[in-house]
Design a protein around this nucleic acid. Sequence first.
DNA 1: ATGTCATCTTAGAGATGA
Length: 250
Amino acid sequence: MRLATWNVNSIGARLPRLLPWLEEVAPDVVALQETKCADAGFPHIELSALGYESAHAGDGRWNGVAVLSRLGLSEVSLVLDGHPEPRFASARCGPLQTLSVYVPNGRSLDDPHYAYKLAWLQSLRERLEQADPAVPLVVMGDMNIALRDEDVWDITAFRESTHVTAAERAALQSLLDWGLVDVQARPGKGEVPFTYWDYRAGMMHKNLGMRIDYVLATRAVQVRDAWVDREARKGKGASDHAPVVVDVDL
DNA sequence: ATGTCATCTTAGAGATGA
């Protein structure tokens, strides 16, 4: 079984890249983030033509998450309790419980959005308590957290920044402590396989990136291979995030 | 690194978010 997660930064703008990518890479289960579209505008038909059922939570301009599956799609849940923004989608995809999450950015340490980020992560942790860490389950998505210093291009550039604070890392570690493994992708251009590069200042070209997109899997999911598809971040009309692809056995 | 991209408002450049 092949899994993938990708922050597409607007599924509308990205459809000319997303559809060929799905055909080429042929993942069985996909978590998407930042679809930036309302449910009515989600391309269910185009995805169906490629064999995917899809569940989408979105309300328009911001956020938006989806789960795509060609192994069946059931037990859909699109709400994380207490949080109206569409940042959570959960579904059973064949034998695999699949969560697609778009963790709030946080913006800056003194912004209310930062506290919201931590509260949202706490809610996600509580949501996991309703599941069983012994079953095949993955949490995939844009965590907006770099778990280790080496997961950003230069930790000294993050002195007063979100994404690297002890509180954020503890919140992500708390998800792992429930019973999830942080699946390690093969090394990329550098030692750490970054998943995000800012559009500005030639960051991609200089490989000044961040590892903030994750596949977190229970131990019932046996990982065969994992990589970041940097090619999908290149060229015209690319997202600022690259997909993470993971081959697993259950 | 602050160099781009996407979307919405309301008709075209600015605001917002990442």
